[in-house]
Deep mutational scan, measured.
Amino acid sequence: VTTYKLVINGKTLKGETTTKAVDAETAEKAFKQYANDNGVDGVWTYDDATKTFTVTE
Rank of each mutant, 00 (worst) to 15 (best):
V7F: 07
V55E: 00
A35D: 01
T19W: 07
E16V: 13
T17I: 14
T3D: 09
T54P: 00
V7T: 05
V7C: 06
D48R: 06
V40T: 03
I8C: 04
V43N: 07
A27M: 01
K5A: 05
A27Q: 01
V22P: 14
W44N: 00
T50V: 06
T45V: 09
V43Q: 08
I8P: 01
V40K: 02
V7D: 03
T2I: 14
K11R: 13
V43K: 09
D41F: 14
T17Q: 12
T45N: 08
N38E: 06
K32E: 03
A27N: 00
V22R: 09
T54Y: 13
N36S: 14
A30M: 14
Y46F: 06
Q33V: 09
T18E: 12
D48V: 10
N38G: 05
D23F: 05
D37Q: 11
K14Q: 12
T12Q: 14
T26L: 07
G10A: 12
T18S: 11
T56S: 08
A21C: 07
G10T: 15
G15F: 15
T52Q: 04
T26E: 12
A21H: 03
N36I: 15
T19H: 11
T54V: 06
K29E: 07
F31S: 00
T18Y: 13
K51R: 11
L13W: 14
V1C: 14
K5N: 06
A30Y: 15
I8S: 03
V22M: 14
L13Y: 14
K51G: 04
T12E: 11
D23Q: 04
W44C: 02
L6W: 02
L13S: 09
V43P: 03
E28S: 07
L6G: 01
Q33G: 06
K32N: 04
G42Y: 03
K32V: 07
F31H: 02
G15W: 15
V43Y: 09
T2D: 12
T54E: 05
G15C: 12
E16L: 12
D37G: 05
D41Q: 13
V22Y: 15
G39E: 08
K11A: 11
T50Y: 05
V55A: 03
T52H: 02
K29H: 08
I8Q: 02
N36P: 01
A49E: 11
N36E: 12
T19S: 05
D48L: 06
Y34L: 05
E25F: 11
A24P: 12
D23P: 01
N36Q: 14
K29Q: 09
G42P: 01
L13R: 08
A24D: 05
A49H: 09
T17V: 13
D47V: 05
A24Y: 15
V55R: 00
L13M: 14
K5Y: 15
A21T: 05
A21Q: 05
G42Q: 02
E25N: 11
N36V: 15
K20E: 15
T56E: 09
V55F: 03
T52N: 02
A49I: 11
T19G: 04
A35V: 10
T17S: 10
A27E: 00
N38C: 09
Y34K: 03
K20T: 15
T54D: 03
V55N: 01
G42C: 02
D41N: 15
Y46E: 00
K29F: 07
T45S: 09
V43E: 12
A35S: 05
V43L: 11
T19Q: 06
A21E: 04
F53M: 02
E16M: 13
G10D: 03
D47Y: 04
N9V: 15
T18K: 07
D41E: 13
L13P: 04
T12C: 13
E57S: 09
Y34F: 11
Y4Q: 01
T2G: 08
A27R: 00
E28K: 11
Q33D: 08
E28H: 12
D23S: 10
T52S: 04
T19K: 06
A27H: 00
L13T: 12
I8D: 01
A24N: 07
D47Q: 04
E16C: 10
L6Q: 01
D37M: 13
G42E: 01
G10F: 13
V7E: 05
D48K: 08
F31Q: 00
W44M: 04
N36T: 14
T50P: 02
K32S: 04
E16Y: 12
T45E: 12
K51F: 12
G15K: 13
T26K: 07
D47F: 04
L13F: 15
L6I: 03
V22K: 11
D41T: 15
E16D: 05
L13G: 09
K20P: 07
A24S: 11
D47E: 06
L6T: 01
T2W: 09
T19E: 05
T17E: 05
V43C: 09
D41M: 13
D23G: 04
N9H: 12
T18R: 06
E16G: 10
T17L: 14
A49S: 12
T2R: 08
